[in-house]
Design a protein around this nucleic acid. Sequence first.
DNA 1: TTAAACTGTCATAAAATTGTCACTTAAAAT
DNA 2: ATTTTAAGTGACAATTTTATGACAGTTTAA
Lengths: 235, 235
Amino acid sequence: MTSATILIVDDETAIREMIRVGLELAGYECLEASNAQDAHGIIVDQRPDLVLLDWMMPGTSGLELLRRLRRDELTRDLLVIMLTAKDDEDNRVQGLDVGADDYITKPFSSRELMARIKAIMRRSTNRDEEESIEVAGLKLDPSSHRVFVDATPLDMGPTEFKLLKFFMTHQERAYSRGQLLDQVWGTNVYVEERTVDVHIRRLRKALQTELRDCGLLIQTVRGTGYRFSTTGVCA
Amino acid sequence: MTSATILIVDDETAIREMIRVGLELAGYECLEASNAQDAHGIIVDQRPDLVLLDWMMPGTSGLELLRRLRRDELTRDLLVIMLTAKDDEDNRVQGLDVGADDYITKPFSSRELMARIKAIMRRSTNRDEEESIEVAGLKLDPSSHRVFVDATPLDMGPTEFKLLKFFMTHQERAYSRGQLLDQVWGTNVYVEERTVDVHIRRLRKALQTELRDCGLLIQTVRGTGYRFSTTGVCA
DNA sequence: TTAAACTGTCATAAAATTGTCACTTAAAAT
DNA sequence: ATTTTAAGTGACAATTTTATGACAGTTTAA
């Protein structure tokens, strides 16, 4: 496996050092930048595989840099993990919307950081599989972000879409509410497990066309969670 | 669900109390320690599921204790959430690499603490993949949490599922009701032994398809208990 | 800015599961 | 053949776990 290159952007030298040591130990190649300007140059020039970007920095903020990266066609798909301080937490949602692939709150453990990096990279490796998935007469098209049953588009919210996508790519297996939260909502999002039930309901409702109102696709696994299965669907 | 045990380590009694009340209200069992020495003893002795560890304490610091825990094979995987005060934040770089599973900065809301605990615990419950077991035309698949006879899924309750799973992994041997209670229901659960009979019946019923109504799989061992056996099945 | 769309939580209704009984049936023991 | 003891069953009420509808706070789009 070709070792990935990671750019660390943080104005605090100590933090950069700490992270770098850990990453290099784990076999990653590291680049560093202490401000957004340098970072941008390095990104364009060296094309790292992933950027660890501090939220707060003197001058151009990490947030601003992220926005710029996402605007540019060349850097749009760059993986970015935002490093936020506790105080910034309120803004994290905003950060994700701008398009960070993940964020991690300082202070964090190297364990956690490593786990996130691996998770993100793994996810991106499969990014080519953005072909539409088709299961049980259901077609999910990631690029257009829509779901069809036969030719008619179904209407559902973003969360339901993500949930369905996860289910369609992980069929025939039971997942606990906790696992679904991790997989669909993302790690480090604190949401009640019961919320999953509600979205399951919304998804079931959305999938329920006049024709196919057999709600058997998303099955309840009592005491455990839910399962997406085509077995036993529509007699 | 078995409630988890959490050890609270903080030198301030008031804080421990506050946390304990909240956790117990949420159904967790709590242990307390006011210093690192005691904490270590309790950890080794009682093996809590998670430790809330104050960073700053007189004597051995929480940081030092965490280091020690991570060094020891027996406590390496223990979940630890560090409680840090605002003032400690300067030192956080030091702690980044010690390997706490999460950090939370004082003062924090009980809601936040609860959320983190839940998140951490569910993430750690990464049960490894279990192979599906197949016996006598019966297939039990742990990952999908289902049982099939040929290709048709069988319907049964959680307890019956656990019972069947136990039997399928412990064939050809007689178990007393008491042993079954221990193995399937879990130790220290007060349930009448005769209850086993009822669940055995329910399981037998569930396994009884139109085709295979030979209830010989689960055999009665008079005066002793039950046995799962493939010998003498379906004449 | 307003209206429409989403989200996460609750409270409450609905279902499914559980442990026990009381009673029947089957197997040993007398 | 009777009596005794163990196991099989159907019925229940209590308890758990899910399903749902309603809401209030937010975000998004027009």
